[in-house]
Design a protein around this nucleic acid. Structure first.
Length: 880
RNA sequence: GGGCGGCUAGCUCAGUUGGUUAGAGCGCCACGUUGACAUCGUGGAGGUCACAAGUUCAAAUCUUGUGUCGCUCACCA
């Protein structure tokens, strides 16, 4: 136990986190605590969801990382060989956009300087600005093993990516195909389905007349994107549509372009929508492309990669941006007299996840991963519970995606990333880890989707495909903590990759956090400016307080409405913790303190037994909460225990002993206080590592070192004692009742009063033993106990669990007020009694409810009845 | 259109397998500087658990339906 020197006894009255929080991080790091223990029993591995190299810390990270740090720190304390591996991904599109923009500002054009030169700039940028977020994570206290930090473009990691591509290619799971893909005209690259965000958008439905080539009539088509008509190569109708059977096989003369295009029949067309005629643009719509293939239509691409019009449209339109072209087409159609009508129309429009540009369906040659064979095993492992998902409802989403999976477009027309390991020579294709030796081979210019590297994260970070020690020891990992927004992008794909390349699940538990929103429920975003800078918050409240607050308000997997005031709860709690520790320390005698386990059991009084019983219950509850990934519940339990049980009651009880003359008893109170404090610090350490480590200094034994490396407390059932808990509960209830009387009768808390307690012998005995606590906490003078105590004249009364308590307040008591008080209590009691009586009067209840429930209700009724009688007697005596 | 989720105190949310007249934090009211803490303490007020029907001896909790807000998936031009 700690050895106290008088000079060291004082801690400041208000906790100021700044100093403490800067102090401990390097000490922990130097101590080697972040490294997995060589001889830990089990291993516990957690891979950080790699933030973007361009990323800076936001509130979402704070939640995410805090949860991970809690799990990691606890695992470490449980004695596991714990690895939390940090790293980041290269974020192809975002980084390339950023670097391109930076170069542009310096008057440098990316195309002009060429690939190699551009990459030089990009790497320089990465070295300079990349990974700022890691410095920020350290401020938050994240206890990652920084020596193992990974970047998806590290040499060894890149090797893994290449190896995976080649293997999948050789296994026939990667192919090149010409398809309609999602094109981001701003980033000028293809995207996967998942990178397209559909937004409901108010637009129009334009109805155009297309005249038949023979001039006999016209038909009407509708479109939300008029500019695409320049690429129309057909008009489709449903084969069963009687209205148009005559027209099938004829042609229309496409306005503006004056191209003759066929009218054909295809089942895809919905007869009931619009006019039942569909203009078909095979190069710019997925469905149109499919119809085009079925019906042998021409395919005319009308866009440049930047979505301006190319040479395949009439001269006046070449070079126009698609939205300008839209206007111009509508005008022209109107001028030609072919505009039937314009309707307001709300439909969903795809936007690029990264650049927010409206995505263009675009025909091009890209590389794809065949997903079906990978999806099936991934479905299995979740179905049979090998991989558990918390909260469970996400399983449905996961399954739905995998059951309807589409092939994954993985090529990106960018430079920053892993270049596709494929070379072409004429018609020949070569895919391999090394460049072909003969001359004339040209490498594919494209790079791979960033997710094509991060889906390997759980094992490529450990050195795969080499059979490293780390890989053996730490794969498969245990937990994954991330947001549900990347369930498809990342989580599902990691499961596929883990199973395919390592033949093992990558992790056993997936914990999805909620999304942090602002007070009004809006997502936090830079453009709204509603996202506070976490570093400011750390400075203002302390990182510990931010962690604690956010974890307390974060229900499992539900969104969190964040506002700064909510951090006060955490800050106040940290201050409370600080002061309770300070107080205990202040009251320790000089010299070493005995261990609780060495203490003679006899010396413990009922409040000691009570707090020890509560403590061990709490440890158990906390462990249970962890096992269900209810981190908010775990902290809540410790919070309540610390504040209510320990500070409000135990310490208050202990004061009588700290200041009393009984040296032995004082020692006992000190020993128990310190014991409880030490365990509180341990239980809290994962949530608020800095302050607990700082306070640990004061409470650790000489042979102990850092709290971060301490052991997790075990609940010991020998301390759990329901009788003691009940006894002390009555004591507390009596104290509360007296306080209530004083408060409602406006009796100054400073004024001492007497107390008489009438009740059965057992209860009186137990209270009598705790007389000193009653006296002190309820501010009482003389106390009388007994079965036959008479009610003193002019006393206020209350009934507590069958006990009658009388506070004689001659001269102080306002009869009217006391009558009011009692009447209220009587009313309350009558309400209870009524409810119970109704239940017991119900024949069906008595016949059908389980025995113990009925007994329970009968006891309740009896107690209520007794209490009510007493209250009424007291009221009567007052009124006479 | 499909799927999922929220709806409980003025606000933000807890509430295990149905079984005390439903809890916390913040806010509010009253009192208080009682030898840790005013980032505090004590006491108090405040709820038809969105609505409706059903199952049950018993429903905030289970079922169905409705409303509402949000998320997500979806090729109807």
């Amino acid at each position: 136990m700690p050895e106290i020197k008088k000079s060291e006894k004082e801690l400041s009255t208000v906790y100021s986190p700044a100093q403490v929080e800067n102090k401990w991080y390097p000490i922990w790091e130097k101590s080697g605590a972040y490294k997995p223990a060589e001889n830990g029993n089990d291993s516990f591995t957690l891979m950080i969801p790699p933030p973007n190299v361009t990323g800076i810390l936001h509130m979402g990270h704070v939640l995410n990382i805090s949860i991970q740090d809690v799990l990691v720190r606890r695992a470490r304390m449980l004695g596991k060989s714990t690895l939390w591996l940090p790293g980041m991904d290269h974020a192809s599109i975002a980084t390339e956009a950023k670097v391109t923009k930076m170069l542009k500002e310096d008057g440098i054009n990316k195309r002009e300087i060429g690939r190699e030169e551009f990459l030089n700039h990009a790497w320089k940028w990465k070295e300079k600005y990349g990974g700022i977020i890691f410095q920020q994570l350290k401020k938050l206290g994240a206890s990652c093993d920084w020596d193992r930090e990974k970047f998806t473009m590290d040499a060894d990691y890149s090797k893994a990516v290449m190896k995976v591509f080649v293997q999948l290619y050789n296994d026939g799971l990667i192919y090149r195909g010409e398809r309609i893909i999602n094109w981001d005209p701003q980033g000028q690259t293809a995207l996967s389905e998942e990178e397209v965000i559909h937004k409901d958008t108010k637009g129009h439905l334009w109805h155009f007349r297309y005249p038949l080539s023979d001039g006999s009539a016209h038909l009407v088509v509708a479109t939300t994107r008029p500019e695409t008509m320049l690429g129309d190569t057909g008009v489709a109708v449903n084969p069963k549509d009687d209205r148009y059977t005559d027209l099938v096989g004829k042609t229309v003369l496409l306005p503006i372009v004056n191209r003759e295009i066929p009218i054909f029949a295809d089942d895809y067309v919905d007869m009931d929508f619009g006019t039942g005629c569909v203009k078909v643009t095979p190069a710019h719509d997925t469905n149109d492309f499919e119809m085009g293939e079925r019906n042998n239509l021409d395919i005319i691409n009308i866009f440049h990669p930047d979505a301006s019009l190319n040479e395949n449209v009439p001269k006046d339109y070449v070079g126009l941006d698609r939205f300008e072209a839209r206007k111009k087409v509508v005008e022209a159609i109107e001028t030609l007299g072919f505009l039937e009508k314009i309707e307001d129309y709300e439909h969903s429009v795809g936007h690029s996840e990264r650049t927010d540009a409206v995505v263009e369906p675009y025909l091009s040659k890209q590389w794809f991963v065949k997903m079906q064979p990978l999806a099936e095993p991934a479905l299995e492992v979740v179905k049979d519970g090998k991989v558990k998902i918390y909260p469970e409802r996400w399983v449905k989403t996961y399954n739905h995606w995998l059951e309807n999976i589409k092939d994954w477009c993985i090529s990106r027309q960018l430079w920053w990333g892993h270049r596709i390991p494929v070379w072409y020579k004429g018609d020949k294709i070569y895919c391999g880890l090394v460049e072909p030796e003969e001359d004339g081979w040209v490498q594919d210019p494209d790079v791979l989707d960033t997710w094509f590297s991060s889906w390997l994260w759980p094992f490529a970070t450990l050195g795969w495909p080499e059979k490293t020690e780390d890989l053996k020891k730490f794969y498969p990992t245990q937990d994954l903590v991330t947001g549900p927004d990347i369930i498809f992008f990342w989580v599902a794909r990691m499961i596929m990759a883990g199973l395919y390349f390592c033949k093992e699940i990558p992790f056993s538990n997936v914990y999805f956090t909620g999304i942090i929103r602002d007070k009004q429920g809006r997502k936090m975003s830079k453009s709204l400016g509603n996202s506070p800078d976490p570093l400011d918050l750390f400075e203002k409240y302390g990182a510990d307080a931010v962690r604690v607050s956010i974890l307390m308000i974060a229900p499992q997997g539900l969104d969190i409405l964040f506002s700064e005031e909510r951090l006060e709860q955490g800050r106040n709690f940290m201050n409370k913790l600080w002061n309770s520790a300070r107080f205990i320390r202040m009251n320790l005698d000089e010299g070493p303190l005995e261990k609780l386990s060495n203490l003679d059991d006899e010396k413990l009084d009922s409040t000691d037994r009570w707090i020890l019983s509560r403590l061990n219950n709490v440890i158990e509850e906390v462990d249970k909460a962890y096992s269900e990934y209810k981190m908010n519940e775990a902290i809540k339990k410790v919070y309540d225990f610390t504040r209510a049980d320990f500070c409000d009651w135990y310490i208050e009880f202990a004061k009588t002993r700290f200041y009393g003359d009984d040296v032995e008893d004082r020692k006992t109170a000190q020993i128990v206080s310190v014991h409880i404090m030490r365990i509180i610090l341990k239980l809290l350490h994962p949530y608020c590592p800095f302050i607990t480590e700082e306070l640990w200094e004061s409470f650790k034994k000489p042979e102990e070192k850092l709290l971060i490396s301490e052991t997790w407390p075990l609940s010991d059932s020998k301390w759990i004692n329901n009788d003691v808990e009940q006894d002390v509960q009555i004591l507390m209830d009596v104290i509360s009742a007296v306080r209530n009387i004083r408060a409602s009768l406006n009796v100054s808390p400073a004024k001492e009063a007497d107390l008489s307690i009438r009740g059965n012998e057992n209860m009186c005995d137990s209270l009598c033993k705790n007389e000193n606590y009653l006296q002190r906490l309820a501010k009482l003078n003389d106390i009388q106990f007994g079965e036959n105590i008479a009610k003193p004249p002019q006393s206020a009364t209350a009934v507590v669990k069958g006990l009658e308590i009388f506070v004689p307040l001659a001269g102080l008591i306002d009869i009217n007020k006391e009558v009011e008080r009692l009447e209220k209590q009587i009313q309350d009691m009558e309400g209870r009694l009524n409810a119970v009586t109704r239940k017991l009067d119900n024949q069906n209840f008595v016949e059908r409810a389980p025995e113990d429930v009925i007994t329970h209700e009968r006891n309740k009724m009896q107690n209520y009845q007794d209490d009510l009688t007493k209250l009424q007697e007291n009221l009567n005596s007052l009124q006479n």
